[in-house]
Design a protein around this nucleic acid. Structure first.
Lengths: 221, 221, 221, 221
DNA sequence: AATGAATGAGTATTCATTCAT
DNA sequence: CATGAATGAATACTCATTCAT
């Protein structure tokens, strides 16, 4: 049960001053390192503080509670996930659908390969943080963006319920890539997974399958 | 003292006697109820025992540790998930691919609608249990079964790397349905999600899209 | 603190019947085996019963509590220690002091080499059992016997306070041999320790040292 | 998570600060009081903390586990036992053997009369602590020191195997005095036990008995 | 007599959080 | 602002003992 004592999961203050910013970063780095190395079980506030080289007191100066530390870590990760997506969806109207979709998938793969271990722990071991949880926030924001992008090329779509289709598609991409980080790292890095995902998604959305063979080229043309 | 590495996540003894069986069930019921109601945080051995109306001692008579309680709960859930799959994949050779796939998806949806709240908590909040974790065991077993089923209809397939395709497809189905339990219960119950998923998967695997409109009928013919 | 709930540390009944006797023995054997193998930490009533192949209930039929199990084990050990001593002290009047003393020491060594591991655990790990503890009972009984034996040869003694001397001597012998079981097993088996102890004790009691070299022979003549 | 095998039986940190030192002392005092009053059975970490007037948390701040509490208590006791012995053995070469031996025994008696109840509990009831146990460490260190002392006066010795003799002698002295704390406190305080022990040991080691009557004087001359 | 399921008080230990310095 | 000593509620698990069958 998510027991939020404080408004929680948000940094206590905007890190305006330099020293503050530095301290916050040092703490978050330590937190990430600990999570990656020892999993959520090793993630204790005292240890984070010690590893960061600050006192627990200082940690609590910047983060009202343990949860907020995780929250910030997640926020940063989502930022990374969203950075590219914003740019790509912005250009959706100018490009064929297939191209946009492939770009989105490629970018998601790229983002998942940044500190994959941390990403892993964050989504697998860390208990849910209530409505502030990144998975929820990110999921729906991503869906909105993708929906908007798809709507700019409505004519190419062959789906009935666009909402449902977007939900399906974003979920499938995110989860496939996420799981592949652990299960199929080679296919992820080689582009094989991107290729297959793209074929699956584009085929589904447009009703016109990219031929397995020509898809890469086709999308580029 | 011989410190037996507790082969955790397995019930301590086969519940042979009637009283024993009853106790085991009463405990598992209580465990499930607590998980659903209060999440993993509320899941303490003492509370489970109390809720079950037995002593902690009794709980530990049947489950060597907390983990094993979760393990058994998971085992039962997986059993539910697998029951139908085995039957369906067994008949794969006799039916068109689309039909088998739709059946698998429908069955998975059905299984997810049995005690969905418990299913949810089990996969989202409960920390990973090592190699005994059902997610790992189940995932790969399911993939194997599906692969075998698809191979009986190789000629209908239009994918290069079958392994990768199976990985993608089973993961996408499982995660889409799983997420929809929480996010889109109506689409799940109405069959809309099943429909879309089937179209996506069949289209991807065969290279020949089911038309959105005629898909249901088509699959049946 | 020794918390005796029952009159404790005595077997509940004289094992008269054959089946009873057999059960008692089977339980004590199991208890001894467990103590030797796993130390006092492994010594739980349930495990003893299981190892013995009887139910806990049966164990409690014959032993009112855990303590009494240990008590009986100790009683048997003391019996072993005392068996020889009685015979030897009985003949004390007929023999030179040195001979009696050597005989007592030799017999004590012999007794300590019977199941030394059990002996060890019993005296080192097992918590004190109150006034019923064998160490106390045995210690004073042994002292009494030795005192009586020495008094039959008073003329050979060169000590002032005989009581104190006996206390010193019995304690020294017992503890030296006991420790040597663990620390100097070779000297114990070779007879070297017996030799030295005899020299020390005889010298102390008679005021006339046995020469190191001739002591063995001298005692025998 | 990195599970550091706690190098138990050592204080967690050097008690540098004043407040820390005070807390440590207050905890150890409480621990000693509880052991003396209620024996090892009453010795629970929670009770120690409560008696000390600190929280369990604080206890664990300074002692990584229960064992380490006992370890420190033992360490301090051994310190007491060794303090005098070092000084006495250092001067062994300058003095007749008898004098050194008597001094060692007297000092051991003195040390055993400091908080004898605690000493008692520590050696009788407290379970062995592995290689960190003071009994082992102290025993062999003491033997080494005594051996060195005796070797400075080799010419006065009439023993064959010095190692064995030292083992015998240190064990006998330690155990006799130790037992006498409980069994013969009057003889211990009056010096009678010291006297007899000295006669026994000196006689054994030198082969020339101190006459019972003149021994005190003789040793002094 | 024998069984073994059930009991539940008791224990060591952790860790998020506070607050006096 | 920073420190880190102190807090104490909470938790998993054990085991001697009982008693209904």
């Amino acid at each position: 049960m998510a027991k939020l004592k404080k408004t929680s999961a948000n940094p206590r203050k905007a890190p305006a001053q330099d020293r503050s910013r530095a301290t916050v970063d040092v703490i978050l780095d330590a937190a990430a390192r600990i999570l990656v190395k020892g999993g959520y079980a090793a993630f204790t506030t005292n240890r984070v503080a010690e590893t960061a080289g600050v006192s627990v007191g200082s940690l609590y100066q910047y983060f009202p509670n343990k949860e907020s530390l995780l929250g910030e870590l997640m926020r940063r990760h989502v930022e990374e996930l969203e950075r590219g997506m914003v740019a790509i969806t912005a250009d959706a109207a100018k490009r064929p659908l297939a191209e946009t979709i492939r770009a989105l998938i490629e970018d998601n793969v790229r983002a998942h390969l940044v500190d994959p271990a941390l990403h892993q722990v964050l989504s697998e071991e860390v208990p849910r943080l209530g409505p502030l949880d990144w998975r929820i926030a990110y999921g729906s924001r991503a869906a909105m963006r993708v929906r908007a992008a798809l709507e700019t090329r409505r004519s190419e779509l062959a789906v009935g319920d666009l909402d449902l289709a977007v939900y399906l598609v974003t979920g499938a991409v995110e989860s496939a890539i996420h799981d592949a980080v652990a299960d199929r790292p080679d296919d992820l890095r080689s582009g094989a997974l991107t290729e297959e995902l793209t074929r699956m998604i584009v085929g589904y959305l447009t009703g016109k399958p990219l031929s397995a063979r020509r898809s890469l080229r086709a999308a580029a043309e």
